[in-house]
Design a binder for these strands. Sequence first.
DNA 1: GGTATGCGTTCCGCTATGCGGAACTGAAAG
DNA 2: CTTTCAGTTCCGCATAGCGGAACGCATACC
Lengths: 264, 264
Amino acid sequence: MVERNKETIQATKTSFEIVHTLQEIGPARLSEIAEELELAESTTHRHLQTLHDIRYVSRDGERYQLGLRFARLGRAAQTCDPAYEMTQRHVEVLAEETGERAQFVVEDHGLGIYLHVETGSQAVRVGFGVGRQIHLHSSSVGKAILAHYPHERVDEILDQWGLPAHAANTITDREALYEELETVRDRGVAFNREEHVDGLNGTAVPVKRDGRAIGALAVAGPSHRLTSEWLDEEVPDMMLAAANELELNATYASDAGSRDHIVE
Amino acid sequence: MVERNKETIQATKTSFEIVHTLQEIGPARLSEIAEELELAESTTHRHLQTLHDIRYVSRDGERYQLGLRFARLGRAAQTCDPAYEMTQRHVEVLAEETGERAQFVVEDHGLGIYLHVETGSQAVRVGFGVGRQIHLHSSSVGKAILAHYPHERVDEILDQWGLPAHAANTITDREALYEELETVRDRGVAFNREEHVDGLNGTAVPVKRDGRAIGALAVAGPSHRLTSEWLDEEVPDMMLAAANELELNATYASDAGSRDHIVE
DNA sequence: GGTATGCGTTCCGCTATGCGGAACTGAAAG
DNA sequence: CTTTCAGTTCCGCATAGCGGAACGCATACC
């Protein structure tokens, strides 16, 4: 390698690569990780030792795994988001009222991240928990958010992540997505008809602040249960009411919000 | 610096130092971080750029903050723990039955980490959320866990973290703690009488597997409400029942547990 | 009980890599 | 128009991180 590598630190990236490997394959031995990442064992060892030192990985005899210290960082990252606290209750209520899975999602680095997930009484228990990432083009929440973003930002995001197909109905054409976003903007509600997972529908409304979306509320469920009337009328009404209340809150509370800073 | 630095990577540590700074002081500007850590601005810049690249920090104009990608890692770390799933329900039930705050805590690197926290109807809402770390010597959960650890491990932990005083009643003498642990082992229940926070009591029972504690269930509340009879008799009974069920589960399910591996 | 195998750790020498200082940019304030 | 300040880029140097090889240390195999 000759050129100066875009002003970025390799060691840090490698350490996080190791963390990702542990996240994906779970508790693993040193040699597995080294092989997976095509690193020398000595190098892998040094990284793991460092991460262990600072308590971000634990080892149980011969297996390494993610340290629970990450739980703290994860929480800190979530509570940093101004929308975190005020949306929690609304998601709970939505889950209860609809009986389906309710969620609140925000955008970060061009992806959607689930901040809250509540499963109603009859909700499907698929693995879309808190912290999960989702492409914005193929989900109701994503479209709700993108519809209220400036054009150039939407382009940036689509450039970065593309429009990969996740299910039969995924919108993979950029122009088609623009049109869809237009519609979403007009209606104030975004739908997902089996665009992300076959058999799964969703409905989302943006939560705005100063005209820009700071996140989106959504309800998701199996397509056979989220039928047209229910989905087109009742659910959106509930969600719009919630979003409305939130928006009042958001602009009202403004920066007076008491960030519950966890000390130490 | 002359000696080879204990076989550990400085760059990774610095990156995490920056992450910690962001965790503590919240959204911050580059210069603040650089000053806080006494790093050159160019160095700080390089680290932040790297962390931004891999989506672990976001920037909002001129302020950097923790990226939400950490939420995913945090969840992954939690669900890695075999006790995570099976204890959730029990904590919920305990919170409901007692009306107080119920918790499940495990040990990692010699500290207690809250895996579940549920606040009952009248529970105090202090900042001890999921992911929070706590010293083992000054909490009911900690004592419950330590009481069922091998002696040498307890020593190691005390060597590493000491016995700092957090409240008026904190046990700061090693011998006194050993005696206390003896008592806990006999009774099967650990108490915390304003040892961690003044005015806050707690009761904990260990959840064991093969004789070793894999975590502890606890109920905590203001000392005026958690009075002697209630605390000494009823609460422990409820918790022991829960722990018992869990232990059967733990040894029964053994390694047959279906780890709900979040794919992608 | 000796040998083989496999995994983890330590050692070592090389150079790429991360470092701080200084120079540059660009915006906001005076 | 100048000054100031925060952030970014440039640059040369020394060190810190790298891979390969050697070393321990088990457990398995014969």
